[in-house]
Design a protein around this nucleic acid. Structure first.
Length: 804
RNA sequence: GCCGCGGUGGCGGAACUGGCAGACGCGCUGGACUUAAAAUCCAGUUGUAGCGAUACAGUGCGGGUUCGAUUCCCGCCCGCGGCACCA
């Protein structure tokens, strides 16, 4: 038993006092920047799952420190946003005060776990000195034309009373509160992230050390599809219907065209639409539907034909009907599609309901050119009924037909993305003010850089208004300002930025946290950037990680940073579930508090256990018994180093094991395979326990244990006579000569089945092995009366004898 | 529907590049110590048969390739995650 409470307290104090974790700026050394996704300090504090990623990065940070790197391993707070604001409203305290309290709680909890953060670099997104630069970057985007004001309908959460970005939805519901969102036209600021869609996609290939799964999620989210835009002239008018399709090859099967109900062509054509009253009624009925209702795949496809309107298929000059139907989305492509019921499921469903003709133009069959009757055929195939293009494969046809379109000015090649521009306005209080001023004479005028930051003012009521205005709008003396351009009467923009704004670039601020002249000093940035390793939850794959990559690329384009991607290597941390296998939540009463575990079993045991639970990326269930197991392991270590041993000195085999373990632990930490590293340490400690361990061997063990269990290792390191911190010692080198085995277990198989193992010298030859085997009683039995057909020998591994 | 990941003892999970399946930990069983319990230590712990050496079966299911498959290939089933009337 050791007194973990006293011991851990002692070392936390000493490390603090000695400045052990102060980041060195000594440029002669190689740098290593290892980063966690900074937490949102909520009112409830951390549960044991939160620190898992932080422990992992801390283990690697400590390894790098011992390997002689300059390590940047910072921590900070992503503190703007709705939860704090709601908590503040509920508890009648100011969000700033709530934030301060929550940060204090979080910090205390983190410190208990003994992380090696340099707190002098702490950042806080709600600090005006920080968000000055969030606003600065926004203004740069504004300057470059990447920001625009829009009145388009956007997602509106009726419960949070704010507009939301597409990324803030989960299955048509508000990701925060779960309310069904409404589509509401609102004035809002939008960032053209779509301008960066192609680069965000392409550059994923430059990130070989990102997990494939995260890259896939981003690819899905960006949703690139290649196709063509085609013009269908509207007969008897000057208007054209532009459609987007990835399947030009099916166009001879197009039997009608569909417009999204919101397509602005419809009102323009109203004079020609004979059934306008009915059409208007349909459009009205669609308007009242939520997005969730509209995109319900199970519902019947509704729509209405626009009587009196015909569109011309440019390929065959056919006149086709035009519908308005809500299965076509206005927000994707051109808000209009050419319908090919024979080769598209959705068009097929609609055509069946609305008696539209169905005509095949692609066959699965090259030789007979038969149309598939009675079913929708969506695969590629060979063209039929397609004039000069008949007989071509879908792929060739797409190419040729696209060229035909371009030649005849009826359309062009086009790439579309699913990702939408980033709705950047929130009608809430607790966020960065958007630094723009509206002036009657000059329009929208940016706040001059010298006037940044635009500080979030103190308001009496910060409750959301629900009117589409933020609570800031009520602050007359803050809102009314002189126009920076003409000096006339101006009004400040009262929307605030979304929570994602401040987290887009915080990793750059750690590099140079107190700079008031620039977002980050260029020389410092060039040294520390990019982040070598980034660790956090997979839930950020399509939110924070897309936004941050975009923001970084923008900063790169304006020369503020030196590299095009922010994070070189990325791993996601698996959740820790409750002991009952469910997600930890108050609702289930299965939340485990880390403070309690640290108090009972120690920070070291908690750290070791969380790393031992399973593969880092995997979700695993908490087990307090498991934690007790790792505590026992640490006690064994303590006994081993501190205890009296009458045993003999360690043998060669165990010394070899020690060196193998040094190698394995180092490699496993690099690869984030902590569970096998701990397992190897346990095996080593079990073996060493059989012997008397001298100072040299004991010190080696402590050094490789130290990243996981820093307090105990440091204590035992000191008590075994070292005067410097263990983290100032160099990570041990394993002795390559010692780790190659002299003796190995050679597996003897008969017909691939294990029949014996022989302990033999590692360099045994096939002939020697065969001779040994023939003398072996068990093997003899199996060879008896059989003919040896073949022998397979794998050096140091096995001899397989094939018999008949 | 599309994309990705996974399925190994009672549980969490190991297994390099196709070469001893179940390391390590938890739990459980038996024993030692103890008046007793806890703690600790020792032994055992995939299933079936056997006192036993041992034999057979065994990594979601069905096939295949191979001297040899948890690992590779084909076809399924189940679970998780992402995207989704995206034309």
């Amino acid at each position: 038993m050791y007194d973990h409470q006293a011991l851990e307290k002692k070392w936390r104090k000493r490390w603090q006092a000695s400045g052990l974790y102060k980041t060195s700026e000594d440029r002669k050394k190689p740098k290593y920047y290892i980063l966690d996704m900074f937490p949102y300090p909520s009112g409830v504090g951390l549960h044991v799952g939160h620190p898992k990623g932080y422990i992992a990065t801390d283990v690697l940070a400590r390894l790098r420190l011992m390997q002689g790197y300059n390590v940047l391993h910072p921590m900070g707070w992503d503190a703007f946003g709705l939860p704090t604001e709601n908590y503040a409203i509920q508890n009648k305290i100011h969000p700033r005060v709530a934030t301060e309290e929550n940060i204090a709680t979080y910090k205390k909890q983190l410190e208990l776990l003994g992380f090696s953060y340099d707190w002098e670099r702490e950042v806080n997104t709600t600090d005006p000195a920080y968000y000055k630069w969030t606003q600065w970057a926004f203004l740069k985007m504004f300057e470059k034309g990447l920001v625009y004001e829009s009145n388009e309908p956007i997602n509106w959460c009726p419960s949070c009373k704010t507009g939301l970005a597409n990324e803030d939805l989960e299955d048509g519901r508000c990701e925060r509160c779960g309310s069904e969102v409404e589509l509401k036209p609102m004035r809002q600021w939008v960032i053209k992230i779509t301008d960066y869609a192609e680069r965000l996609l392409q550059d994923l290939d430059k990130l070989p050390d990102w997990e494939e799964s995260i890259k896939e999620m981003q690819k899905n989210w960006i949703g690139r599809s290649e196709g063509a835009e085609i013009i269908f002239p509207v007969l008897g008018t000057e208007e054209n219907i532009k459609v987007f399709t990835t399947r030009v090859d099916t166009i001879f099967g197009c039997t009608y065209v569909v417009l999204a109900p919101e397509n602005d062509l419809i009102p323009r054509l109203c004079g020609k639409i004979k059934n306008w009253t009915a059409v208007e009624k349909y459009l009205e009925s669609v308007k009242n539907k939520t997005d969730l209702q509209r995109t319900d795949l199970n519902k019947e496809k509704t729509g209405i034909v626009l009587e009196g309107i015909k569109a011309l298929n440019p390929f065959n000059q056919e006149e086709v009907a035009v519908f308005a139907a809500d299965y076509v989305l206005n927000s994707y492509g051109t808000g209009a599609v050419m319908a090919v019921p024979a080769h598209d499921e959705r068009d097929w469903d609609f055509a069946k309901n609305h008696d539209c003709p169905i005509r095949s133009s692609v066959s699965s069959d090259a030789s007979y050119g038969k149309a598939s009757a009675g079913a929708c055929y969506t695969e590629d195939g060979y063209l039929i009924n397609s004039g000069e293009f008949s007989g071509l494969s879908s792929e060739t046809a797409r190419e040729k037909m696209t060229r035909w379109l371009e030649r005849n000015k009826f359309g062009a090649r086009k790439v579309n993305y699913k990702i939408k521009d980033w709705v950047f306005s929130r009608q809430r209080y607790w966020g960065e003010p958007i630094p723009l001023i509206h002036c009657a004479a000059c329009g929208v005028v940016p706040v001059p850089e010298a006037d940044l930051p635009v500080v979030l003012p103190e308001v009496k009521s910060y409750e959301p208004t629900g009117t589409g205005e933020s609570p800031l709008a009520a602050m007359a003396d803050w809102v009314n300002v002189k126009c920076p351009k003409c000096g006339g009467a101006g009004k400040r923009e009262t929307n605030t930025m979304p929570q994602w704004g401040g987290s887009c670039w915080y990793y750059l601020r750690y590099i140079d946290p107190h700079n008031d002249k620039a977002l980050v000093d260029k020389k410092k940035e060039a040294y520390w950037s990019p982040v070598d390793f980034y660790v956090g939850g997979a839930e950020h794959a399509t939110r924070h990680l897309i936004y941050a990559r975009f923001w970084h690329k923008f900063l790169f384009d304006i020369g503020a940073v030196s590299y095009g991607e922010p994070f070189i290597r990325l791993k996601h941390v698996g959740l820790i579930m409750g002991e009952d296998g469910r997600k930890m939540s108050k609702r289930w009463g299965n939340v485990i508090n880390p403070d309690e575990m640290v108090k009972k079993f120690g920070a070291d045991a908690t750290r070791v256990y969380e790393m031992f639970m399973g593969p880092f990326e995997a979700a695993t269930s908490w087990s307090t018994n498991g934690l007790i197991g790792t505590r026992k392991f640490l006690e064994k270590v303590e006994q081993l180093i501190a205890g009296d041993h009458a045993n003999s000195a360690i043998d060669k085999k165990t010394l070899s094991l020690l060196h193998k373990t040094i190698k394995k632990v180092g490699e496993d930490i690099e690869n984030f395979r902590f569970n096998t590293a701990i397992s190897a340490l346990m095996i080593l400690v079990n073996e060493l326990g059989k012997f008397r361990v001298d100072k040299t061997e004991g010190s080696l063990l402590l050094q490789i244990l130290a990243p996981f269990a820093p307090h105990l290792s440091e204590e035992l390191w000191e008590s075994s006579g070292h005067s410097e911190s263990i983290f100032q010692s160099s990570w041990p080198q394993y002795d390559a000569a010692l780790i190659s085995d002299e003796m190995v277990n050679l597996v003897i198989q008969i017909n691939g089945k294990l029949r014996a193992t022989l302990e033999v010298s590692a360099d045994i030859s096939e002939t020697e092995a065969w001779e040994l085997v023939q003398d072996n009683e068990t093997i003899k039995k199996w060879l008896d009366g059989k003919t040896v057909v073949k022998k397979i020998f794998v050096a140091k591994r096995l001899l397989n004898i094939v018999v008949k």
